[in-house]
Amino acid sequence: MARVKDYGNAELEEKLQDTSYYADDANPQFLEDVKKLSRTAANMCFQCGTCTGSCPSAPRSSYRIRLFMRRGVLGLEKEALNDPDLWLCTTCYSCTDRCPRDLAPTDVIMAMRNLAFKVDIVPRNFLKTVQLIYKTGHGVPNNDVNRAARVKLGLPADPPTTHSYPEFIPGIQKIMDFYKMKENADRILSEGEQ
């Protein structure tokens, strides 16, 4: 149990306080949420570094997937979600294939990204994809150059997707609205512009 040391000196008190990192800033629920969303036993990481060693992003950035696993184990929610490196995972799943504890670090990253979005932390490009899908059904919609090319190939100018059947778009919007996804994306994007 932590004790008040009573040095009689506020500065010393501050300096010499218990600094165990899993006391104040840890959120045990964070680990539970990560486990549920990732569907992997994220608590079982033993920090061997096979994941980072497999990671194509690691050698060219400060992104260390092992560190995110550690933050997950300790429930260091803020430290994990506020680290922009979270968005450097290409989801190649090499770490997942090699993890000796049979965990899926990639899915842990995906879970943490989900949790970050819940607190409005998300890169803009992700939100723009959301808006495009909401509007057209496609993350990468058709354009005029491509339409012309399609016709030359003997294909319909628009593919037989929501592009040709826009009557399906309201259904897609309903699904996204169910989770308030578009609403949140719009809000975060507009707040970012202010």
Partner: peptide, 17 residues
């Protein structure tokens, strides 16, 4: 007919599975 984006696993799954 009427299919949409899959939706993109990285860009989309990343924000809300």
């Amino acid at each position: 007919k009427g299919a949409s984006c899959c939706p993109a696993p990285g860009a989309f799954g990343a924000i809300d599975l």
